[in-house]
Nucleic acid binder design. Sequence first.
DNA 1: ATGCTACTTGGCGAAATGGCCAAGTAAAGA
DNA 2: TCTTTACTTGGCCATTTCGCCAAGTAGCAT
Lengths: 103, 103
Amino acid sequence: MPTRSQDRTDRRVAVIKALAHPSRLIIAEALQAGEQCVCDLRELVGSDLSTVSKHLTVMREAGLLEMEKRGQNVYYRLRCPCLLSFFECVDSLAPARKRSDKK
Amino acid sequence: MPTRSQDRTDRRVAVIKALAHPSRLIIAEALQAGEQCVCDLRELVGSDLSTVSKHLTVMREAGLLEMEKRGQNVYYRLRCPCLLSFFECVDSLAPARKRSDKK
DNA sequence: ATGCTACTTGGCGAAATGGCCAAGTAAAGA
DNA sequence: TCTTTACTTGGCCATTTCGCCAAGTAGCAT
């Protein structure tokens, strides 16, 4: 059975992994200034739209981002305004993902 | 040619990746309390000594750790006492790795 | 309805990562 | 000297991650 501290470590690792990619880090940095739609982020990172969408899913499932659909656009924003006080943030994110078990 | 901000992003990603693994995160957390030798860390994470050694190499090359050999032991410690103010730290690590190009 | 725009999801090959074992190195001890 | 302890490094295989293309969904416009 997983211990309490393993849970905490796994949660931290999920968040850190969600930042551990150049495109995803650039997205996170961009979103510090405020929400953006996927097509703007696509232009920013320069990858295929499907690739960007998958990066955003990873970040959202880690608890880093939340999304909102308005009109035909989907806007993403940081759930955590911290990044600078990173680990405090990681611990505060607690439960944010649900969609299936992902593991 | 890589831009200045690409360099910064790559450096940040290297540090974040170096923390984006359960064993490495556990090591980083343990080292916040002070330096430890490889065999102690091996016992802590429970993997093969060679595996732990490789994890430590990744962390050291990212600039997170420094090592010192004393007697038959090799001691590792955090170069960055922050982790809590994570990104400030990332930017302050600047040049720490050299050994070949690693990419 | 049809079409367009803005996505998400599935699939698949390519590349990176992680783990162990085995072999090599270096220092301390007998 | 030879042995032991404490690593590091190389190699290889299994798993994960990444990126594209292709196909599917949803809302707006005509």
